[in-house]
Amino acid sequence: MFTKNVILLGVFASTSLINAASASTEITGNIESKCVITTDATGVYGNPTTDVLSTLPTDGGVSPLIRFDILEGAAYKGVVSYPMQFTTSPVLNDVVNWTGAAELVEMSSAEMSAFETSKVQYENVTEFDLTIAGSAWFKVTSNAKYGYGKSFPGGTYSATIETECIAK
């Protein structure tokens, strides 16, 4: 009886030692500075009148939503450009007047509102200084007006919004 108890105790002790050994297994990881550009919503042009294509929800469109995930503050500059031409369209015989904007709409930290107040705009480009780590969502609006009193011909239309993350 005594011998059996000693054997059981020995088995229990060795199992505990194995558990203790497996509990000390390490998981290693590596954190490095990076910027990830994520398209949370692709834009869709609405056609409120025959001569206008617009991503504004009030015009029946969907505004593209782009997320920048920044792992380290002040390492990157975010650049968002609304389109100035179609990448796909039927033959257009008149000029297209483009307007648009890019704005910060949501952020993981309230301090990131500085991105919007210090943004720099020129032509169709908006630059954001990504000084704080976290996630920031940018909404882009795009509006194309065709000629004067003309209708867009029927067909497929697509345009590209350029989003860039440039290391500083």
């Binding site: 609405g46 795009s142 497929t156």
Partner: peptide
Amino acid sequence: YVCSKSKIISTRNGDRLAIPSSRICSK
């Protein structure tokens, strides 16, 4: 700068899309 940029090639008939293209540049 060393950059990578997404190339968007496909649209379906009748689409009216504003597609985001992404470019990331390392320094």
